[in-house]
Amino acid sequence: MEQRLRLEAKALLEQGKVSCVIGFEVGSLRFTTTPLITGDRDATGRLVLNPFMANNLSVYLPGIKEKVAVVAKGCDSRSIVSLIQDNKVAREDLVIIGVPCSGIIDLAKVEGLVDKDRDEIDDITRHGDKVLITVNGDKREYPVREVLFDNCLACETPTPQEYDILLGEPTAAAGDESRKAGQEKIARLKAMAPDERWAFWRSEFERCLRCYACRNICPACFCERCFVEETEPTWVMPIPRWQDNLLFQVTRNLHVAGRCTDCGECERACPVAIPLRSLAREMYDIVSELFNYRAGTDKEAPPLLTCYEPTDVEDFIR
């Protein structure tokens, strides 16, 4: 597959169909990938496909003025469609290289499982629904479900629906058990009393640095000027106090409602490990429950909050 990706990417550049390719290459840290953005046909030899390609590359697309090819997993391709819906990128400017995904490995889970730091792990390889982790020459096998990101466990669309080239066979959506595992953290939060839940989020946001990594990595956060940077009026104080941190994040989630595809990038980007996906996914589920709306599944559909149905929920209105 990797070989085919390299050939396709090279051919696209050579034939002048695109001026740039956005994909993954091996990262500088072990068991990571890093985005590769290149117009150089020889550099396409560095493209990789592996279970560590976590980034949602669609974040680079808004505002792009040339034709580009982009590698997209299921969630990424939905983010791309969502950007098309918002007129942030034109379909005809894209060559979407779809990759049917079977889940991305969460290194933190691997570390927890073998109780070793990533630097002490020799190798991690995936074989179907098993993962082989080698530590000090000792090979251990685990079900892959134990090491995938929560959002992958609960993924509804691992195979891209929108693509020009599809690399490989479609993969199936997560089964009930897997989905349940992916939603476990959220279920625990929902089982709490409201006060307890507020206290939980409050303590999480006491750590927030307001680095805005979550916003910057999010493909659905594409505003050129964010409300947090407004000074007339100042909606949120720039000092990272928990009150304003929380207000920022709640508002951000409201802004990405109907655009968020539960790619999990916000949580991965957060340097202080705030469980941001537990916010994003809940909004995703609210939107799908109330409006049967799934972000990025229909490029002709108007964005969620720019349309309405006469029969929309009203039971909360007095």
Binding site: L189, M192, P194, W198, L254, E282, I286, L305, V313, F316
Partner: peptide, 17 residues
Amino acid sequence: FTRRRMAITKRFLEYMG
């Protein structure tokens, strides 16, 4: 549009606690 926006706002605030 208000109705849609408020529906998700109310639900999300509830989730925050």
